[in-house]
Simulated scan of single mutants.
Amino acid sequence: MRALSRILIGGLILATLVWLKGQFVKLHESILQLDRLSQDGGLLSHTHMTDNTHGSNSTAEDPLRAVMNAISNSFLNGTIEKLATPKSGLRDTRSKVVVVAKTAKEKTQWISSMLPNWKHAIYVTDDRTAPLHTAKNKGREANAYLTYIIEHYDHLPETIAFIHSHLSSWHNDQNAAKALQLLNIDFVQKNGYANFRCHTTPGCYPAEIQPFRNKKEQAGIDKHEAATERAFAKAWTELFNSTAVPEQIGVACCAQFAVSRDQVLQRPLAHYVWFHSWLMETSLSDATAGRVMEYLWHIIFGMEPVYCPKVYQCFRNVYDIWDILS
C-alpha cells in the first residue's frame, strides 16, 4: 500500500511538472509575441503591421529582453491615455511631424503604428534608393534634420519633432512613442524649442562643452567630448561667422527635440543651407561633426548656450507631468 502511495505521489509530481513546463512554454511564447508587437508598435496601433520578418530572431535569442519589452510596452497605451492632456501630442489637432534619421538596417515600423496621429518623415542615411534619403552618410542625425528643414522650409507643420530611430534607448527618459504622445504642444509653441531629455546627465552640470578648457583638464574627460571641444571654436566661427565663442555650452544630450514652425522661420533658409553645406564639407570626422551639431541645436533655435532646466521643471513644461520631484 505504501509503495502504491509513493507511485501515485510520484506520478502526481511528474504530471504537475509536465503541466508547469507546458504553461511556461505558453507564457514564453506569449511574451515573445508581445515583444514582436511592441517592437513593431502594434500595442498602440489601429492597424497592426504584417511584416513577419521584423526582429524575430534577436527576440528569440534574448528572452530577458523580450520580458522587459513586453512588460513596459504592454502598459504603454494605458499610461498615455491616463496622462495625456488636451494639449499633448496624443490629443492636440495642430499639424505635427516626426523627423527621423536611420540607417537602412534599423527598424522603424513602430513610428507609423505607435504614432498614428503624427505625420512622419524617415530619412535613410546610407541608402540613396530609399524614398527619403540624405545626399551622403555624414554628420549623423544632423544631416537628416537639416535635409528635412531645407526641403520643407516653405510648408512646415506647426510642430516638428526630431528623433532617433529607436523606440527605447539609454538616453531616452522614457519610451520615445510615449514622449511624443505626451509632448506638451503648447509649450513647444510658446518656447520654440523643447528637449525630449529632461535628465541632465550627460550634457549639464558641468556643461558638456568648454572650448577653452586647458589641455590638462581636457585630458581627464571622455575622448569624444575632448575631440568635440577641440573642434568647437573653429566650427562656431565657420557656422555663425562669429568669433564670440561661448565659454560653456550645455544641454541635456542627445539631439532629440521638438521645435515650432515659427522658431524655425526665425532663421532664413540660407542659414540651414549653410549649416548643411558645412556638415557635408567639413574635414571633421562623421562622429565629431555630428557631436558639434548636437550641442548647437538649442542655440540655433533660440536658447542660451547653457540650456539646462531642472529635471522637475522640464517634466512639467515638456510633458505637463507634475509629480517628478528630483
Rank of each mutant, 00 (worst) to 15 (best):
V99F: 12
R316C: 09
K26W: 05
K87T: 15
E304W: 02
M303T: 05
I249N: 01
G55M: 14
N184W: 02
I13A: 11
K107M: 05
R6M: 10
K190P: 00
A142F: 01
R6A: 12
N317E: 15
Y319Q: 08
S95R: 04
G42E: 03
E29S: 09
M303W: 00
L279Q: 02
S113N: 14
I163M: 12
L17N: 06
T79Q: 12
I221C: 07
A270R: 09
A287R: 15
H164M: 07
A244V: 04
L296R: 05
Q218H: 08
Q313H: 11
A101T: 10
Y312G: 00
T159A: 04
F196I: 07
L12T: 14
A219K: 08
F315H: 14
H199V: 09
H120M: 02
I7Y: 11
I299A: 03
A135N: 09
Y295T: 03
H166K: 15
E281D: 12
Q23Y: 02
K96A: 04
S5H: 07
N175R: 03
V273F: 03
S168F: 13
Q263P: 03
R197Q: 04
G290C: 07
A142H: 01
H28Q: 09
K190M: 02
A70D: 04
H171R: 15
N195D: 13
H46M: 10
S283T: 13
C204I: 03
C198S: 06
V25E: 06
A161L: 00
L37M: 14
M114T: 09
F275D: 03
S242V: 01
D40W: 04
G220D: 07
A227E: 10
A227W: 00
Y272W: 08
K107N: 15
I122E: 07
R261S: 12
N195S: 13
A255G: 11
R197W: 04
N57Y: 12
K102C: 08
N117H: 14
N52Q: 14
S285T: 12
A179P: 00
Y205V: 06
P268N: 10
Y123M: 06
L265F: 08
S285M: 05
L265S: 05
R6Q: 14
G42P: 00
Y205A: 10
Q33D: 06
N137Q: 05
A231W: 01
H28C: 00
V188S: 01
G139P: 03
E217A: 13
